[in-house]
């Protein structure tokens, strides 16, 4: 079970983060789903894809916690959650090549782009707070984060393609 969980945890986590945009809520839910999967693993049918089974558990956890989303500015509709749950099992696994490409491409980011990434992801700041720290406008920070993510994705794709 441990191997199955570790192989599919990134996909489950991505679904939860998509459904619950607050990072800490998503982390909490991931832990809860892990406990639920471990507790109910004797009910898992090996003929069913593990990820599909685990996503059902994750979806139910999301529904149970909707009342705690008061912190979020957005709550996805039931139809959207269903669409995401339906697509979640199709996610590609996070491979060693993916992680290595991310690590390598992140290393290449410097200067203000790196500062913005660290403030957003390490300190979980919002764009206005980042703008204050970096003496930029909030709109410029949004643009910078967008361009940095796009450049990272492009860099990673090229690195992964060159390895395959």
């Amino acid at each position: 079970m441990t191997e199955l969980w570790y192989a599919h945890q990134p996909a489950i986590s991505a679904y939860l983060y998509a459904a619950v945009p607050n990072f800490h809520d998503a982390e909490d839910l991931t832990q809860q789903v892990a406990v639920a999967v471990a507790r109910d693993f004797d009910k898992y049918d090996p003929d069913t894809p593990f990820l599909r089974w685990a996503i059902v558990i994750a979806r139910n956890r999301v529904l149970n916690h909707r009342r705690s989303f008061a912190m979020s500015k957005i709550v996805f509709s039931q139809d959207t959650l269903d669409a995401l749950a339906d697509a979640a099992p199709d996610q590609q696994p996070i491979t060693t090549a993916y992680k290595a490409a991310l690590d390598n491409c992140l290393d290449q980011i410097q200067n203000k782009s790196r500062q913005a990434l660290k403030l957003r992801y390490e300190e979980d700041l919002r764009t206005k707070e980042i703008a204050t720290r970096l003496s930029m406008t909030a709109n410029a920070v949004s643009v910078l984060l967008h361009r940095t993510r796009a450049a990272l994705a492009e860099c990673m794709k090229k690195k992964i393609d060159s390895e395959t």
């Binding site: 991505a14 996610q91 992140l106």
Partner: peptide
């Protein structure tokens, strides 16, 4: 997201990258 399953997949991929960036940093 609801218009096409491919869009839902693409959104999840964007979220996954977002997560992985945070995890790595």
């Amino acid at each position: 997201i609801q218009a096409d399953k491919a869009n839902a997949r693409a959104f999840l991929a964007a979220v996954r990258l977002h997560q992985q960036i945070g995890s790595q940093l």
